[in-house]
């Protein structure tokens, strides 16, 4: 009995009694798991909850199909189909190249501006794609929330895999462009998975937080469109970090996307030394955002069906 029903921080007991309690509770949970494997207890909860990773794992197939559904629905009945995954960032890049590269003559750290901004756009599209879809995930699937139980966290998580396809396709084009400009990525390419993880953690954390908020306040959804656009200019997508005063760059790097984008450029365009410090800062911030987002989501989860 009492699986996953542990209340976190239920009072100001002494540390010793708290530890004793924890051990006792863990033991009883184990015991009850052994005796009654499939017992579910339903009762009111309050405050912060632990994240039920076991349930998430049990529903991993749902995550897979939700991701798949996202991809299939998106490209159903379209002529270009998955080609839009390339067309979107490419067209934006061309626009940026025209406006910021040619007209405004922004610096691109010595590489062709089109590569400079496309590298950033590929990452940014992935990041903003997850962010937008996660934020809208609960509201868009509110019928489902009212009709069936599953760990709700699956919903904001689904875009991570879904958007990975778009990212992959756009990435292939990036490699094509690199070939064309005869550029070779540095050894730091081993850091690429870390950069992707930073994007995933950040967007998922913020997305989970905002989706929980959007269930109750639809304003979040409406504000999202221009917020994402605005956010893009806080990251070095169209410009280089070089225009930020050196003294403030540490603060600027608190935005995890700074480390990601500059890291990508360092890997593929060799614009600078790999920015370990910015990536490190970004990684820490992204993990914090992720944890906060998930816990906030769990805290709000119990009201979703009632307010959605």
């Amino acid at each position: 009995m009492g699986l996953g029903e542990l209340k976190v921080g239920c009072g100001l007991n002494g540390l010793a009694s708290y530890l004793a309690l924890t051990i006792l509770v863990t033991f009883t949970v184990k015991l009850s798991q052994m005796t009654e494997k499939n017992t579910t207890v339903i009762q009111a909860t309050s405050g912060w909850q632990v994240i039920d990773t076991a349930a998430l794992w049990r529903y991993r197939d749902l995550l897979y199909f939700l991701s798949l559904r996202g991809i299939k629905i998106k490209y159903a009945q379209s002529i270009l189909g998955v080609g839009w995954a390339v067309a979107n960032p490419l067209i934006q890049t061309l626009l940026f190249t025209l406006i910021f590269g040619n007209l405004a003559q922004l610096s691109s750290d010595g590489s062709p501006y089109i590569l400079f901004s496309y590298t950033a756009m590929v990452s940014w599209s992935y990041f903003s794609g997850i962010l937008t879809d996660s934020t809208n995930s609960l509201v868009n699937n509110r019928d489902m929330i009212g009709k069936v139980y599953f760990p709700r966290l699956i919903l904001p998580m689904a875009p991570v895999l879904g958007k990975l396809v778009d990212f992959g396709v756009a990435f292939v084009v990036l490699i094509g462009l690199l070939f064309y400009y005869r550029m070779v990525p540095g050894w730091e390419i081993v850091m690429l998975p870390v950069l992707i993880l930073i994007m995933v953690f950040t967007s998922l954390g913020v997305g989970a937080f905002l989706s929980a908020l959007a269930v109750q306040y639809r304003d979040v959804q409406y504000a999202m469109t221009f917020m994402v656009r605005l956010l893009m200019y806080t990251a070095p997508v169209v410009y280089s970090v070089a225009i930020i005063p050196e003294y403030w760059q540490w603060a600027y790097a608190l935005n995890p996307m700074v480390g990601v984008i500059e890291g990508m450029r360092a890997i593929f365009l060799n614009t600078r030394e790999f920015p370990w410090q910015w990536v490190g800062t970004g990684a820490v911030v992204s993990v914090l955002l992720f944890l906060y987002g998930c816990f906030y989501f769990r805290r709000m989860e119990r009201h979703f069906a009632d307010v959605a």
Binding site: N38, T39, V41, I42, A44, Y149, R302
Partner: peptide, 23 residues
Amino acid sequence: LSRITEPTEGRVVLRGRVSSLLE
């Protein structure tokens, strides 16, 4: 009972694998 929403008070114990079809 389907764990879609939480009760305000009270308690439910379900022993066994549960499937619920509300729709």
